[in-house]
Nucleic acid binder design. Structure first.
Lengths: 360, 360
DNA sequence: TTGTAGGCGTTATCAA
DNA sequence: TTGATAACGCCTACAA
């Protein structure tokens, strides 16, 4: 017999345990599925009676639209993916917060991944995000090169990317970063003005763009202050505590009188190393560190730092990304936020020296 | 005319800009859509030749399965939602890291939201997570009651919930928390053993389960040590810096010789307040704080703290949640992780006093 | 082993 | 204003 107008397997009453669908609501309200959709998205005008019937049904069935289905057909998930090297690095939470705030306020959710700064993990995460069809991706690029095939795929699906904190021209020109050169320059100059002459550097992996910039700033500041560059006072770390510790052991034995450390975690490592050999800050060496945190104001030594606008970094990146997602085709933007030197006492007579964060 | 066996609107060649679908691959490989699916999920045996053809097509078209569609039909997103009061509170990043690690290793992604500890925001986030059909939710409950309708909805969709750090019996019995009573008790007893007699407390909002527990621990320890309870030395904060600052101003004027602060952020506030009135730790007052961080070991005063196993808190919560998601129906679990007293010098002669974190 | 066809829960396009 | 009905891209009986 012909498959008459019988509701096929469609008919599924309010079977419990199963979340109600649009057709359930439609049946309950005695209207078409279209009508339900219309009132939910309040599109075309729906007569008062029907609208009310639908609303009642929705309430009664405890209906909640399935955003998966909507995403599937609209080709839009209202979700942005973010892969960060390590959310437990105190630098990132505030950045993520900025992202979340901006995303949330524009109706996007955040899918967060850690790459541990490992290229393989980063690639896995990116592939997953692509498969989950996020609308755009915020990336704190791990050290290393993306595989050509992945890059190819990214180009093809044409999904917006915005780099955060680290540039990587192979991928995109959109990036929101801090002016690391300037921050570094200011930090070292401050050290010099505080009378330090043998200034050391504990930097990040030089494959990372901001580590390179910070290194450049260090070199240029030394030169500007007519200070010698001593390779024995320079170490390349990886932005983690342990590397700061080892770098500290290496550098401190050469007796620098000032050290500039390119991030907070490595500073902790350095201070640990200093403690072990009984060297004090600022008595034995002046110190300027990157990234500022609330607790740095209350503990001693009260560290002089170069603060980066973390929240803003995140929110601007998210806003840029969302603009791209929503069709902004304007030319690439490289947003460089200015750091701010926060002078405390870790360089000696810091309080009375004027900072120079405004230059350039 | 009858809708003959013509490919309807289906036929869409490799139109660029559009991501390839399964049927595109099938056409390219000259096999059925089923075969493609079979090789992707390597299900039933597919002949070598066909398998190879499919793989080639996949590579050529740069195909990537659409997990949205898969989720829709399998009713499973491989995504867990987490709503946290504030990722920028240094306590949470490591918890989130634990969650992410566990989730990742079991094939789940993390959708992260901030509630700012605001009940309305929390409800919005939860509703969104439900609509996005996450498979389960990790919740650091904000202060306040969930609306009955939302609770109703949660019951109906029957989605697994695991509470983190804070219990809330209205919602679920599954929770992973720390033994706050014990931690608090140990903290105060340590203060007492260090000779402090006028011990104050800066706690959290008493509507929060762990704030209550920490308060209980404080009271009981005072009693056990035969110390008086002075209301002037107790303040209720909200786990934020500012509240610690105000609490400090209020309490310090009554000259406690020991203070126990229930989280790190409030400790920062307290130390700021102390600094403003020229009171020093540990000279003027001993201090024990909750949550430990790497930097606390290198700055002075070197704080004695009650450390909570943050990463484990997150990973165990995620693992429990995933077990529930994957069908574990066993009875409710309330996992209570033990804190650890980390004795440093903020109470005076701390180093030589034996801790008691193992008791009970 | 492989293919066909129906369905997951929406939105969108046409008619009515 | 409403209602059928075809997508969206995938999985999965059931058939072949």
């Amino acid at each position: 017999m012909p498959p008459a107008k019988t509701p096929r397997t469609k008919s599924k009453a309010n079977r419990p345990g199963k979340t109600a669908s649009m057709s359930d609501v439609a049946r309950e309200a005695n209207v078409s599925i279209f009508t339900v959709s219309a009132v939910i998205n309040n599109k075309t005008h729906v007569s008062q009676v029907r609208r009310q019937r639908v609303m009642d049904a929705i309430a009664k069935l405890n209906y909640r639209p399935n955003l998966l289905a909507r995403s599937l057909i609209k080709q839009k998930t209202q979700t942005i993916g973010m892969v960060v090297s390590d959310i437990a690095n105190p630098f990132f939470p505030m950045v993520v917060r900025g992202v979340e705030d901006a995303a949330q306020s524009r109706g996007y959710n955040l899918l967060l991944c850690n790459s541990d700064d490992l290229i393989e993990r980063e690639e896995r995460q990116l592939e997953l995000l692509l498969s989950k069809r996020v609308d755009g991706i915020l990336l704190v690029k791990a050290t290393g090169e993306l595989s050509p095939s992945l890059r190819q795929m990214i180009k093809e699906v044409n999904i917006p990317f915005v780099l955060v904190m680290r540039t990587y021209p192979q991928l995109t020109r959109d990036a929101v970063i801090s002016d690391d050169y300037q921050g570094s320059y200011d930090a070292v100059r401050h050290l010099a003005r505080a009378g330090r002459r043998r200034i050391g550097l504990i930097g990040g992996n030089l494959k990372i763009s901001n580590a390179k910039e910070r290194w450049r700033g260090f070199r240029d500041a030394l030169e500007a202050e007519n200070l010698p560059f001593d390779p024995a006072l320079v170490a390349e770390g990886d932005y983690r505590i342990e590397s700061g510790f080892r770098a500290g052991q290496a550098i401190l034995s050469h007796r620098p009188d000032g050290i500039y450390v390119a991030n907070h975690l490595m500073t902790i490592g350095l201070l640990t190393a200093a403690g072990e050999v009984g060297l004090m800050c600022p008595e034995d060496f002046g110190l300027v560190s990157f990234d500022d945190y609330p607790w740095l104001g209350v503990f001693r030594p009260r560290l002089t730092t170069v603060e980066l606008p973390k929240h803003q970094l995140g929110s601007e990146a998210a806003e840029l990304l969302i603009r791209r997602i929503e069709g902004d085709q304007s030319s690439a933007v490289l947003r460089k936020l200015q750091p701010e030197l926060r002078i405390r006492e870790s360089c000696g007579f810091g309080l009375h020296v004027s900072g120079s964060s405004k230059s350039r």
